[in-house]
Nucleic acid binder design. Structure first.
Lengths: 232, 232
DNA sequence: GCAAAGCAAGAGCAGTGCTCTCGAAAAAGA
DNA sequence: TCTTTTTCGAGAGCACTGCTCTTGCTTTGC
């Protein structure tokens, strides 16, 4: 099923890719709000109605870009962790490396980051095709913590009883084998990481934090501590 | 300067308020992306060009809504903290109360929250009139930590030396008297709080966290611990 | 009482997302 | 190989957007 049938099918794949590329270019230049199908079509030398053969609506185009962005961000985190692992880094340093990779990717692709972690029109529920790519960053973090845990265990204060069942469910769902308290801390740390990156990217740190890079590294270390990663 | 001069000035104030109210209504109903000046004008029985006498552009209208949202959110946090304080709550419980007030406000006004803490078109720098209202929530958090510090001091691990000058500058800028390590942790916690709320609001916790409320309270407690607030 | 300023209305421009129809080209079936 | 079906690009068109400019009317300040 991997073979491309005919010239038509091949052309379709190429045109679809060209549309996404051009859309990504315009996204990087002007942001999601000003991304217009007509402008993309114009730049590609086609008429706007022709574009609807490839994407049924502007939102569908954006969804495609979102999936690609999740994948790109996830890959960046995975690669950074793999590099740290190959260099023999301790779990805490792998964690920080992964966090810094997320931040670096976000700074390089601010509008794409905003697309995935900014405000996706509250109330909007992401289509199912996004949930796989969306979890890649989370999985990297889980993997790091799991490696640390399997090495020598992790010391974390016990969960309040109100959260016991919920943490157990989360553990069963996507982090089997880890202590529930660690999983709960992990999910929170994931959200907090995004908060740090978003604040820097969206200007909330203007006039507040100047040494962004050093500050972020320190905060990432705090997050590592929060999920129980030992300082050494 | 508080007296309203004539009927014209009074009318101007009323119309301006009516425009903002209607815009807020449409914002809550459909989100910022679909907020249209023409629709607001239509609903108010005026023609779209008339609206430009009150707001020079759509972005200016949104900026006005942003300022109001910051103020409303800040007031909610301040009130929650004042209530907790009046009830004799310990700093940690005041902290959690303030965090929960932020979350509750966000859940009640999702689109307005998205307007201020979502993606404000990266690269856009907030106009100066927003920085006052924007810092109200931060000031609440600072006040709580300050009360705890002045009571009995706070134990926090020392800062890495790379962050010393930056933390000292932040301390001098908006949290005079607190230990720099606490101020750095405070700023990070503020961003992390927003990350937690944003993730819940923007659907990132779909299929991940179910018991949102209990989870948030637990995470807020972790944040309190991170800034050094004692558990008792 | 009168000139100046403030205001609403309307027309108009350039742009948008999206739909529909039509003719040409490619693919599939006979 | 010839015919039918599917796929595609182009163009016109609809309803909408932000925004500007001009035209009169009303309120204000002198």
């Amino acid at each position: 099923m991997n073979t491309v049938r005919g010239a038509r099918e091949r052309a379709r794949i190429e045109v679809t890719a060209a549309i996404k590329d051009e859309a990504r270019r315009r996204l990087a230049a002007e942001g999601a709000a000003k991304l217009s199908l007509r402008a993309v079509a114009r730049e590609l030398g086609m008429v706007s109605s022709a574009l609807y053969r490839y994407f049924p609506s502007r939102d569908e185009l954006l969804t495609a870009l979102i999936i690609d962005a999740y994948d790109s961000l996830g890959a960046a985190a995975e690669e950074a962790d793999a590099r740290a692992l190959a260099a023999g880094a301790a779990p805490r340093d792998r964690w920080i490396a992964a966090c810094e990779a997320v931040r670096a990717w976000a700074l390089e692709h601010p509008h794409e980051y905003a697309l995935v972690y900014g405000s996706p029109v509250p109330g909007y529920s992401a289509p199912a095709d996004t949930i796989g790519p969306a979890s890649r960053v989370g999985n990297v973090l889980i993997g790091i913590v799991r490696a640390a845990y399997e090495g020598r265990g992790l010391a974390l204060p016990p969960l309040p009883s109100a959260l016991g069942p919920e943490a157990a469910r989360m553990t069963a769902d996507f982090a089997e084998g880890l202590p529930p308290a660690v999983v709960a801390a992990l999910v929170a740390a994931w959200a907090q990481l995004a908060g740090l990156v978003s604040f820097e990217l969206f200007g909330q740190f203007n006039r507040v934090v100047e040494e962004r890079s050093a500050f972020f590294t320190h905060a990432a270390g705090q997050l590592a501590h929060g999920v129980g990663l030992p300082a050494v």
